[in-house]
Simulated scan of single mutants.
Amino acid sequence: MSECHQLVSELKKQLKLHGVQYQDIARTLDLSEGSVKRLLAEGGNLSLERLGKICQLIGMDMAELFQLSATSHAGLQSLTHDQEKQLVEDKALLLVAVCVLNGYRFADILEQYHFSVPELIQKLAQLDRLKIIELQANNRIRLKISPSFSWLAGGPIQCFFQQQVQKAFFASHFNEDGEKLVMTTGLMSLPSNQRMQQRLQKLVSEFYATCREDENLSMNARHGTSMILAIRRWQFPLFDEFNPVQKS
């Protein structure tokens, strides 16, 4: 895929994520919906002026779009089981990994956590060898993971979360500012369930996009924030005795 088509592909993804319709673009560019569809389909005929106007509709500047396009078509999708195991077995390394995944810079980590400069460089060098980051000159950190990066299902990180983090995370009434817990129930077909999963994944992408928007704020203005989304075909085991007997 050419860089131009990668850019348009990312633009379409962001338009869909922000709920912007072809008719909205048509009004902004003073074009027909058909012309907009052709413009986005062809890609190469999209001028920078028109691109800038479309970006304004989603509250994004062109530089952000170019960056998203560059990162979304490259990067690490996941770690191996052994790599995740290395993180879990070294709590300091795991902490530094979580920091860099959350956008911390070298100075930010030093300011917030008790590391010496040599210790932190050592941990970052380990993450570099794991291909999670590229440790650049002057201790600059460049993430090498894809926006669709995820931990292994049932892997060491997920198990660590379930054993060590989950209980502490839910030890709250979720009634303070910055807290929200919603549980909904209903009857849903498997295809509808899969569509909901796709929408949840878009919300995850929006979460990380929002984090990127705040990168230029000071650390005092940003706070560690976690979001948990879960959906599955599941029934409370307590009621298993009321389930119909499955015939063989």
Score class of each variant (00 low, 15 high):
Met1Ile: 09
Ser2Ala: 09
His5Phe: 15
Leu7Val: 01
Val8Ser: 10
Leu15Tyr: 01
Leu17Asn: 02
Gly19Asp: 05
Gln21Ser: 01
Gln21Thr: 03
Tyr22Cys: 03
Asp24Gln: 02
Leu31Pro: 04
Leu31Gly: 02
Ser32Lys: 11
Ser32Ala: 06
Leu39Glu: 07
Glu42Thr: 03
Gly43Ser: 04
Asn45His: 09
Leu46Asn: 02
Ser47Asn: 08
Arg50Phe: 09
Arg50His: 15
Lys53Ser: 05
Leu57Ala: 00
Leu57Trp: 01
Asp61Thr: 01
Met62Pro: 00
Met62Thr: 15
Ala63Asp: 08
Leu68Tyr: 07
Leu68Ser: 05
Ala70Pro: 02
Ala70Ile: 06
Ala70Arg: 11
Ala74Glu: 14
Gly75Glu: 11
Gln77Pro: 09
Ser78Asp: 06
Gln83Ile: 05
Lys85Thr: 15
Leu87Ser: 04
Leu95Gly: 04
Val96Phe: 15
Cys99Leu: 14
Val100Phe: 15
Gly103His: 08
Ala107Ile: 06
Ala107Trp: 10
Ile109Gln: 04
Leu110Arg: 07
Pro118Lys: 04
Ala125His: 09
Ala125Lys: 12
Asp128Ser: 09
Ile133Thr: 03
Glu134Tyr: 06
Asn138Lys: 10
Asn139Thr: 03
Asn139Met: 05
Ile141His: 00
Ile145Met: 03
Pro147Ile: 05
Phe149Tyr: 06
Leu152Asn: 08
Ala153Leu: 15
Ala153Trp: 08
Gly154Val: 12
Gly155Ile: 06
Gln158Tyr: 13
Gln158Lys: 14
Phe160Trp: 12
Phe161Val: 07
Gln163Ser: 12
Gln166Cys: 12
Phe169Ser: 02
Phe170Gln: 08
Phe170Gly: 13
His173Trp: 07
Asp177Cys: 03
Gly178Glu: 02
Glu179Ile: 09
Leu181Val: 04
Thr184Val: 15
Leu187Gly: 03
Met188Asp: 02
Pro191Phe: 11
Met196Cys: 11
Arg199Lys: 14
Leu200Asn: 11
Leu200Arg: 05
Glu206Val: 00
Tyr208Gly: 00
Glu215Asp: 10
Asn220Cys: 05
Asn220Met: 13
Gly224Gln: 12
Thr225His: 11
Met227Lys: 04
Met227Trp: 05
Ile228His: 12
Ala230Met: 13
Ile231Pro: 04
Arg233Pro: 04
Gln235Ile: 11
Phe236Ala: 15
Pro237Asp: 03
Leu238Trp: 02
Asp240Tyr: 07
Phe242Pro: 03
Val245Gly: 03
Lys247Phe: 13
Lys247Asp: 12
Ser248Ala: 13
